[in-house]
Design a protein around this nucleic acid. Sequence first.
DNA 1: GATGAATGACAAGGACGCTTTACATTTCGG
DNA 2: CCGAAATGTAAAGCGTCCTTGTCATTCATC
Lengths: 72, 72
Amino acid sequence: MRNRIREMRTGHGWSQAELALRLEVSRQTVNALERGRYDPSLPLAFRIARVLGAPIEAIFLDEEGEAGQPDS
Amino acid sequence: MRNRIREMRTGHGWSQAELALRLEVSRQTVNALERGRYDPSLPLAFRIARVLGAPIEAIFLDEEGEAGQPDS
DNA sequence: GATGAATGACAAGGACGCTTTACATTTCGG
DNA sequence: CCGAAATGTAAAGCGTCCTTGTCATTCATC
């Protein structure tokens, strides 16, 4: 599932580590999410939406018929 | 994390099995979600929102400082 | 009272989400 | 260049999500 975490994070002028702190997850988790290695849990998705100041639907793109390769 | 799946499902006049079919998950998963045993993955949350015809934020309640015991 | 539909529950198993630890690479100001 | 900050990666480990299979309970209708 595609997301706009990176573009919204840099829009706030935050490093991955800074965002991780605000989300209370590890820096590696933020990195993995931005790189599309996996999707966040629903509770984490809500925290991301809150911290980035946008609704979940505006951050995560529901691409319907998409397979969604975890990178590779 | 609390949700309104049951009330919205019955509002549509569907059984758990019918909703499960539409979501492409097992009946047990729908039952577990309604009973708050765990939260759905983000992709499943999007499908639930689509099938129930409401935004994710209207179905799943972000109770902020809530511990959120998976029942027990 | 028997039958069937709907719901609740539990166990075992596989895949995913997130952690910590650790190391490599890129970027950039001096 | 040099050093430090930021980013990318990997592995081991644990808990969560979702599956199939099975059984119990409740309720309605016959």
